[in-house]
Amino acid sequence: MAAFGTVFMPKMSLAEYKDQRWDYQQLVNSDSLNLHPGAHVLHYASTCFEGLKAFRHDDGSVHIFRMDKNIARMAQSSRLLALPPIDVTLLRQMIIDVVTAFNDQVPAPPGSMYIRPTHIGTEPAIGKAAHPTNQSLLYVLLSPVGDYFSGGIKPLKLLVEDQGSRCAAHMGMIKSGGNYASALGPILQAREAFAADQVLFCPNGDVQETGAANFILIDGDEIITKDLDSSFLHGVTRDSILTLARDRGMTVSERPLSVEELIERAQKPQTEAALSGTAAVLTPVGSLVYQGRTINVGNGQGGPITEQLRNALNAIQWGQAEDTHGWLTRID
């Protein structure tokens, strides 16, 4: 099977911003873009994106999960990067149009159709390092994906980095390619030195997130995760998991979490930890590497609450449980 996110539908929806207006070009070929070599994005990283999914239900219908939440976050990212303002109504239509066009290609569960809206600055101007682009492209790619856990769920090992940051603190809540690029070096070093799967960035001892997912600690009936600020990404899956935890009567504590408290709680038998994100939903964390020592989280194998919360979210996405929060948008 092809690697996650490497197969694409042959068409994408595309709109261009120029002369202070959006021009929606409908569906175009998805195998290339025509960019000037001096395009703003290629020199000054004026780019942001989103990741969301469409799911097929047992009756054959297709539903997009939390589309409006992702669109709102992309509008926020564009604004914070000084990209041209996104027309949220237009982007919503672009997503619906391209998913509708390939409705019959949406896989059945546990597969899904991964949706990747992308916004890039295209003005050919290499003298605008301190100025925003006045032109941009907005497009929506589709990638059918299979079961993220096709080889079985493997608890992750995280290197706890208590000094360095994933990205600049004022950029954390932007879903921008530059933030992922800045985390890549430390992640590769952690893999080589400690066989770690990811790095948990905790600048000045403040537990934040990994290179590509939010971090959640589960201690009995309490979920602890960092309170929202500008330093890290406000995950849609994170928000969904916390909402489902509250529905179950769990205590949700969104507050600062220090490395010291994390290490102390991690060694309790009932403790669980997980990473939340669109691709893997909720993935268990089995161990932490800190100051050269490997520390199991709970029993080191993940735990029942992580599994229950992941299954509860999947059940809504797959149409096997009632969507009481209005998270699904049906595509006809």
Rank of each mutant, 00 (worst) to 15 (best):
E123K: 08
P85I: 07
A101C: 10
D104H: 15
I115T: 07
F102Q: 07
T122V: 06
L90W: 02
A101F: 03
S61D: 13
L83H: 11
N70E: 11
S150G: 01
R116V: 10
L137R: 06
F55P: 05
K53W: 04
S143G: 07
S77M: 09
L81D: 08
M171I: 05
A54W: 07
S165C: 08
P144K: 11
R92G: 11
S77I: 09
S176E: 05
M173D: 15
F55D: 02
D68C: 01
P155H: 06
Y44K: 06
Y44N: 03
Y148M: 12
G60T: 05
A130V: 09
I153Y: 01
K53I: 01
I115S: 09
P110E: 14
T47Y: 00
N103A: 10
L52R: 08
P155Q: 12
V62N: 13
N134E: 03
A129R: 05
T118P: 00
S143Q: 07
P110G: 11
L159K: 01
D87Q: 04
V88F: 00
S176V: 03
V140E: 14
A129Q: 03
Q76M: 13
L138F: 06
I120C: 07
A72W: 00
G152Q: 01
I174C: 14
S143K: 02
Y148E: 11
P84D: 07
P155L: 03
M74G: 12
E50G: 12
A54S: 10
M74D: 04
S176P: 01
M94E: 15
T122R: 09
D104Q: 15
M94V: 07
Y148G: 11
S112W: 05
Y44S: 08
I64W: 05
S61Y: 06
Q135D: 13
L142E: 12
H63K: 14
D162H: 04
I115K: 03
R73N: 12
E123M: 07
E123C: 02
L158Q: 14
R166Y: 04
T89K: 14
V62A: 13
P155N: 03
S61N: 11
L81Y: 08
L90A: 13
D58H: 05
L52C: 08
I96N: 09
D58Q: 15
L156G: 09
T122D: 07
G111Q: 00
I86E: 01
P155W: 03
L83K: 10
I126K: 01
L81T: 11
L91N: 13
P109Y: 03
A129D: 01
K69V: 06
G164C: 10
F49A: 12
L90H: 07
F149R: 10
H57T: 05
Y139L: 10
G164R: 15
G164P: 00
N70I: 09
L159M: 05
S165K: 12
R92D: 00
T122Y: 06
V62G: 13
A129Y: 01
S136M: 02
T47D: 13
T122N: 06
L91T: 06
C48D: 12
V62E: 11
L156R: 14
P144S: 04
